[in-house]
């Protein structure tokens, strides 16, 4: 046989290139659909508006429940956009192609989760202090609120992505996704809201933030494998 002109390639690695390209691709896509990025933020503001109306406009009362309200509302807002994390990739077939990339799927899915955090979690964290003012959140806890949310939502994105990967093959996975993911969110919620509460009481917050960091580290280590395994299951459903 003649020497083939199609040589067999050695796998060149190129993990960083692939991760970077995936980051750029997902960021471009989301920034072209700004509505999808803004919706969770509007949802966050709306939910926060509902509480004074339903409970009482009394600033003192609001101040006591503000840390919890802000954290719960932000958590729900972050959850809202999770369902679309893998869905469009699943629908148009690029998820299949992602699975067939020579690079490890776990690393590539972390890139996608990172984009989700960058455009959902981080904006929520930055916006939370503003809503804190509206809930008469005591001074001195604003920085902690933003920081705890920024740390916490990263864990939430990672854990939530497992649920999103498990339900992406299902036609109506949205409600199921919340059912799967919310119980797993509880530790993050406890320490996140706890950090803000501690800041209000004047206690040290470093312990809370350290635990949030530890939760993030654990999620970073374990979640990518679960996400990759779940995507492989969903793609063959």
């Amino acid at each position: 046989m003649d020497a083939p002109s199609v040589p067999l390639l050695e796998h060149q690695g190129g993990l960083m290139i692939a991760v970077k390209a995936t980051l750029v691709r997902d960021l471009t896509l989301l920034l072209r659909r700004r509505g999808e990025v803004l919706n969770p933020l509007v949802f966050f503001a709306l939910v926060i508006t509902l509480f004074p109306i339903a409970i009482s406009p009394d600033p003192e009362l609001l101040a006591t429940i503000a840390p919890g309200l802000l954290w719960v509302a932000a958590l729900l807002a972050a959850l809202l956009s999770l369902d679309s994390l893998f869905r469009s990739d699943y629908d148009d077939g690029s998820l299949e192609q992602l699975l067939l990339a020579p690079q490890p799927l776990a690393a590539l899915s972390v890139a996608k989760v990172a984009v989700h955090w960058l455009l959902a979690g981080l904006p929520l964290a930055l916006m939370a202090p503003l809503l804190g003012i509206m809930l008469a959140l005591p001074a001195g806890s604003y920085a902690v609120l933003a920081l705890s949310l920024a740390l916490g939502t990263a864990s939430l994105s990672l854990i939530g992505a497992i649920g999103a990967a498990l339900t992406v093959g299902l036609a109506r996975g949205g409600v199921l996704l919340s059912l799967l993911v919310l119980p797993l969110y509880i530790p993050v919620l406890i320490f996140g809201a706890g950090a803000v509460q501690a800041a209000i009481l004047g206690d040290g917050v470093s312990a809370h933030l350290a635990i949030l960091g530890a939760l993030l580290a654990a999620s970073l280590m374990l979640a990518p494998w679960a996400i990759a395994a779940s995507l492989r299951i969903s793609i063959n459903g």
């Binding site: 497992i162 498990l166 996975g173 509880i186 530790p187 374990l222 459903g237």
Partner: peptide
């Protein structure tokens, strides 16, 4: 939720494993 039983089995297994790792964390928190 899955129509394919094979997928259902795998998905439930992954979720159970994720859950069992989380149970001590949840309990502690």
């Amino acid at each position: 939720a899955f129509t394919s039983r094979d997928s259902a089995s795998r998905a439930a297994s992954v979720l159970a494993m994720v859950g069992v790792i989380n149970i001590p964390i949840i309990k502690y928190s």
